[in-house]
Amino acid sequence: MNIFRFVGDMSHLASFFLLLAKLIYTKSSTGVSLKTQALYLTVFVCRYLDLLVAFVSWYNELMKIFFIAASAYIVYVVATSTRNSNASDTYRVEFLVIPALVLACFVNETHWSKGGWSLNVMEILWAFSIYLEAVAVLPQLKMLHQLEDTTNITMHYMASLGIYRAFYLLNWVYRLYYEGYWHPIAVVAGIVQTLLYADFFILYYQSVLLRLPS
């Protein structure tokens, strides 16, 4: 665990608390894409199946359980919110899910020579979760571009997700240099994902940082 990975994880953790705070204190899920949240829940469930078979550390275990539980709760709250107008949540998620699944079937880290059938299915689902996470933010980005009255807290939520991605990139540079650690699937998908946030940070700069306090 290096400092970049840790800061990235903490920023990811903060993003959950920001979104939960928005949902609980404003009692409104306006501006929150149910589709993006459902994709994140799918990402975490598919990626953290190894909870059942591999123990890395208590840190890893507890974070994984929290990520799954928190994203399930967020999906539940947004899906059951009566005041949510999801008219602008119009992204066609099948265009994200199907290509990610197809790509995962062909580009993954399976080792059929060792490990059982179930472990290799987990590798395919792990790759699927990496690809899906890279693009899962797109429905939320589309909503932010369409909605005029995006609340600052939603923007801060997105910013903390972007910081999480940026620090994971630094983490991979560090690990490649000091540990020889190199997972091309995670790194390439991570770069794509971080580039998508560049679009958001332009919006963030224009709509939040340039907006004078009133």
Binding site: R5, D9, H12, R47, D50, A54, V56, S57, N60, M63, K64, F67, E109, H111, W126, Y168, N171, E179, G180, Y181, H183, A186
Partner: peptide, 10 residues
Amino acid sequence: SENDDEHDEL
């Protein structure tokens, strides 16, 4: 290293 096969990130 041997740990390269494991996914230790979140």
